[in-house]
Deep mutational scan, measured.
Amino acid sequence: MQGVVKVNSALNMRSGPGSNYGVIGTLRNNDKVEIIKEVDGWYEIRFNGKVGYASKSYITIVN
């Protein structure tokens, strides 16, 4: 499943599904990501070869 990031500035990509996990990357508005699965309001995603987590509130699913 594919998604597009929708933010005003930047979205942190984290090592786990929560804001208490470390930041491993930064996503920008309109970045395209691969959604692997949903975990407690977060998406596990793949972006630029990295796998991490981002809040699903800021990612819109596209077909």
Rank of each mutant, 00 (worst) to 15 (best):
I45Y: 01
I36H: 06
S57F: 09
Y21P: 01
K37T: 13
Q2R: 07
G3L: 03
I45V: 12
P17T: 02
G52N: 01
Y21W: 12
I61H: 09
V5G: 05
N63H: 09
G16E: 02
D31T: 07
E44W: 08
K56N: 08
E34Y: 07
R28K: 15
N30T: 08
R14Y: 14
N12A: 09
K37F: 08
L11N: 03
G3W: 03
A54C: 05
K32G: 08
G41Q: 10
G18S: 06
E44V: 06
G16S: 03
E34M: 05
V33M: 04
L27N: 00
D40K: 08
I36K: 04
G52W: 02
L11D: 03
N63D: 13
V62F: 11
I59D: 01
E44L: 08
A10F: 13
I24S: 06
G3E: 02
Y21F: 14
I35V: 10
T26C: 06
I36S: 05
Q2C: 04
G52K: 00
K32W: 13
I61S: 05
K56A: 10
Y58N: 13
G18Y: 02
I36A: 05
S19K: 10
D31S: 06
W42C: 02
V4I: 15
I61V: 11
I36Q: 09
G18V: 00
V33C: 04
N12D: 15
N30R: 08
V7K: 09
W42G: 00
E44A: 08
V51E: 10
N29D: 14
M13K: 00
S57E: 14
W42E: 01
S55I: 12
N30H: 12
M1L: 11
V23C: 05
R28T: 11
T60Y: 12
Y21T: 04
N63S: 13
K32P: 13
D40A: 08
I35T: 02
K56L: 07
I36D: 04
F47L: 08
R28P: 03
G16Q: 03
V5N: 01
L27K: 01
T26R: 08
D40G: 09
V4K: 07
G52R: 01
V51S: 11
K50W: 09
N29K: 07
Y53I: 00
N29F: 10
V33Q: 00
R28Y: 15
V5K: 01
I24P: 01
N12S: 14
G22D: 15
I61T: 07
V33L: 06
I35M: 04
G16N: 03
K37S: 14
I61L: 12
N29H: 12
G41V: 09
N63G: 14
N30V: 03
S55V: 13
V23F: 04
G41F: 07
A10S: 13
I36V: 09
A10D: 14
V4M: 09
K56F: 04
G52D: 00
N20M: 12
N63P: 13
N30G: 14
E34C: 04
K37M: 07
N8R: 08
D31G: 03
G22F: 10
S55G: 11
N12P: 15
I35H: 01
S57Q: 12
V23H: 05
G25V: 10
R28V: 14
E44K: 08
R28F: 15
S19L: 14
Y53P: 00
D40I: 07
G3Y: 02
Y53M: 02
I61N: 05
G3P: 02
Q2D: 13
Y43T: 02
R28M: 15
E44S: 06
E38C: 05
A54L: 09
P17D: 01
V62C: 05
T60A: 13
S55Q: 14
E34W: 06
S15T: 10
L11K: 13
T26Y: 11
S19D: 14
A10T: 09
G25M: 11
R14C: 04
M1Q: 15
S15C: 05
Y58T: 09
S9C: 05
S57I: 12
M13C: 04
G3A: 08
D31Y: 06
E34T: 05
V23G: 04
L27W: 01
N29S: 15
I59P: 00
G49A: 08
G16L: 02
G41R: 06
S19W: 10
N12W: 08
G25L: 11
V23I: 14
N48S: 10
L11T: 08
T60H: 13
V39M: 10
N20H: 15
S9D: 14
